[in-house]
Design a protein around this nucleic acid. Structure first.
Lengths: 245, 245
DNA sequence: TGTTAAACTGTCGGTAGTGACAGTTTATGC
DNA sequence: GCATAAACTGTCACTACCGACAGTTTAACA
């Protein structure tokens, strides 16, 4: 299997073949490390679901259909656990942690897919989460040795693969962009409104008239381009414009 | 310098010495890979600043004071760039990208600190960002060779170090925890309210009466223990209970 | 069978917030 | 000197939202 040179070759390939073609990368990973399948997802996590941003995998179409028919609940549950982990997560640990995934592993066995593997969470832009999961055709007892030898390679290459894909889109969105220039007073009234205070209460707290509170709030709404105080506060919290009360 | 065995020793150390003592880990990294200094920060990014959650580094106190006196703007600028990257970032690239950091590198030279190095962004819980930055005493021309040989080790060990620290706190905070048990309908009306819709508009969108919208909102307020819709939405956004509109 | 939770709905009297009219003073930059 | 921004203020008519009274049906669980 892989030698140090195999790792270096992949490093160089990632550097020299931008924009990256995911399936080419997957093919090289499979050839170099004896990986059976790879599954990569880059998503926007929502409270109870995820919004897919990018999805690449090596499963044949026939297997893909069988997985889809398993139902969204099972796949989503697996995906969410992998995405919420900050450390690599072995499939065995996944299986133990979540009995709901039993049908998924049963199906994998039925389709003659290897069930040993590991998922690597990947550093992503704010508001996003990504994971690359691999399955390898080794007996369960041999997986720790496999990961000890090749884990650092696969982890590092996965991160660089994902970073290359992100880089190819990053010219559009700078997540630390400057917000609209709210004045100190505008931020103050937003803050107190977010804390549940009425205009009258805010006026008393700040020692100004209720009319002025309204004026500042109106300005804040205009600058944030929103139509209600509720929307203004949602926007301000989301963008970190006001501290949590 | 490091052999494969050095890497394995650190892997085993990270597995066998929980809870992790950061300075012990740093000492081992320095010894194994000839690293001059390490700097690790785990933060909550805000729009215009960062809130420090955890900070560990190997700088002596005297150097620490000199850095602080450089001013918040310079350090913050460097930190934000490192935190917002999804790929490892060499210090040379940092310097080129941001002329504002010039005084920082001048000071490092003055204090006889190596200026060659690299920062690794680390997978973090939602709403957090972390980075481990190392400086190594090698000539600029030798850095690429150094990173080619040891980058995968350092990257992987850094990620596991950070994950171990995060794990030791995760029993307290599960970022995907279900907050107060808002029903789906309660979340929906919160979401639309945060998007600036009036009750009448929400009623039309959801195909229910305005009275029912009010009922769900009232429930949401009660469950979130707040006194206004504005406060409810602030709370919900802050806690990630509703997606950004 | 009884209780609880979720989803749904009407009426009434009251208030908090809204836009649209008006204005003031002070400080800064061109 | 003039324009702009920030902070501050009053009045009027209107609307969106509020709590407090009322209710409904369905499903799940003990």
């Amino acid at each position: 299997m892989a030698t140090r040179q195999g790792y270096f070759d992949l490093l160089d390939w990632l550097e020299g073949h931008k924009p990256i073609e995911p399936h080419e990368f997957f093919a090289r990973m499979r050839a170099t490390y004896g990986i059976a399948h790879l599954f990569y997802a880059d998503v926007i996590p929502l409270a109870k679901s995820v919004r897919l941003h990018r999805l690449h995998h090596t499963l044949p179409h026939s297997h893909e259909r069988a997985l889809v028919e398993l139902g969204n609940g099972v796949l989503l549950a697996a995906l969410r656990v992998m995405l919420s982990s900050v450390r690599p997560l072995e499939h065995g640990a996944l299986r133990e942690r979540m009995p709901v995934l039993k049908p998924l592993f049963s199906l994998a066995t039925l389709l003659d897919l290897p069930v040993q593997g590991i998922s690597y969470p990947l550093v992503s832009p704010a508001g996003r989460a990504a994971v690359l999961s691999i399955s390898v055709p080794v007996p369960q007892a041999d997986l720790p040795i496999y990961l000890r030898h090749y884990g650092r390679d696969i982890h590092t290459l996965s991160a660089l693969f994902h970073a290359a894909l992100v880089d190819s889109e990053q010219l559009v969105d700078d997540v630390f962009e400057d917000a609209p220039s709210l004045t100190p007073r505008e931020r103050e009234v937003l803050h107190w409104s977010a804390a549940g205070k009425s205009y009258w209460e805010i006026a008393t707290i700040l020692g100004i008239s209720e009319r002025t509170v309204r004026f500042f709030m109106g300005n804040a709404r205009r600058k944030l381009d929103v139509v209600s105080n509720t929307q203004a506060v949602a926007e301000a919290v989301w963008r970190g414009l006001i501290p949590q009360a």
